[in-house]
């Protein structure tokens, strides 16, 4: 009897999850197939399979994915390959700052027993609970006055704060390391720096890699921040946004727009396909405090 109930429950769950998966994959699959269709094929039937592996839409998209910018008083277009470069620089620099800062701060607060550390901890908790809304204009102003506007490093520094969930994750991770490790090293005469890098960091390396990968993907896909803070350095995500809003005649047909979106998704999908197990597994390991 119990077994039957259990099975029914699991079957219901299975059906729900299957339904969700189908609903999620359908639009993406439809878009993928559509990206190979010619205009005529598309107008004849929106759901037919493409007749051939026609890459014309991709070629058109690659040629027309571009963003006009002004740099040092000269206007020009930024094309896909430069946007790709901008994306790499923006995501890597921001990821480093966004992961290293809370990690270092969390270590300092978790390991050393200073009153100031407790203050930092309270700051994190309070800022997490009390949200501040609508300070974006002020952020832009401050960035401009400090020369951080339109600069990869400036933006990375702005992203390099210790507030938020990352701090909590690292704090929990460092707290869970038994004190003996550090004390043993201390007695051996290791310097504080050495204890941090050689003894403590290796214990949280899975957490770091998981958080870093997640941050990297988030930065890679984020187009609004570069749109606001990096006007002359458009990233590929912003390029995609721009491509789908453009009035350019060549890019006005749906099949070309979809092909552009597919083209731009390829890098991050490759990352996902090759690192899938690692990513999901690691996030499990490095999750929040229980």
């Amino acid at each position: 009897m119990k077994k039957v109930h259990r099975n029914i429950f699991l079957i219901v769950g299975f059906i729900l999850l299957i339904a969700y998966s189908i609903s999620f994959v359908t639009p993406l699959l439809w878009a993928f197939l559509t990206s190979f269709k010619t205009e005529i094929e598309f107008m004849l039937d929106k759901f037919s399979l493409p007749k051939s592996l026609n890459l014309q839409n991709y070629i058109t998209a690659y040629r027309t994915i571009r963003v006009p910018i002004v740099e040092n008083g000269v206007s020009r277009y930024v094309y896909a390959e430069e946007m790709l470069f901008n994306s790499v620089v923006y995501s890597v620099l921001s990821t480093i700052m966004h992961v290293a800062t809370p990690c270092i701060t969390a270590y300092a607060v978790a390991r050393y027993n200073f009153r100031f550390g407790k203050l930092l901890y309270s700051i994190v908790i309070i800022t997490m609970i009390l949200p501040i809304v609508g300070n974006l204009p002020s952020q832009i102003q401050v960035a401009k006055s400090l020369g951080f506007y339109d600069s990869f490093f400036g933006l990375a520094i702005m992203k390099g704060h210790f507030l938020g969930i990352n701090f909590m994750i690292f704090y929990a991770a460092f707290k869970s390391i038994p004190k003996d490790y550090a004390e043993a090293a201390d007695i051996d005469g290791a310097s504080q720096w050495k204890i941090f890098t050689k003894v403590m960091l290796p214990h949280v390396k899975t957490t770091i890699s998981a958080v870093a990968l997640l941050s990297f993907i988030t930065f890679w896909n984020d187009y609004t921040t570069p749109m606001i803070f990096l006007p002359s350095k458009p990233t590929i995500a912003y390029g995609l946004y721009y491509f789908n809003q453009t009035t350019l005649t060549e890019a006005s047909f749906l099949t070309v727009r979809i092909a552009g979106s597919m083209l731009i998704s390829i890098p991050i999908l490759l990352v996902f396909i090759f690192m899938k197990d690692k990513l999901i597994g690691n996030i499990n390991v490095g999750g929040l405090k229980g």
Binding site: F85, V88, V92, I96
Partner: peptide, 21 residues
């Protein structure tokens, strides 16, 4: 080892990107 790997990979990526630009 792993952190070092990731960190150095990132740095290498940026380095390549900067050089190629």
């Amino acid at each position: 080892m792993k952190i070092k790997h990731i960190f150095l990979t990132l740095v290498t990526l940026v380095g390549i990107a900067v050089l190629s630009s």
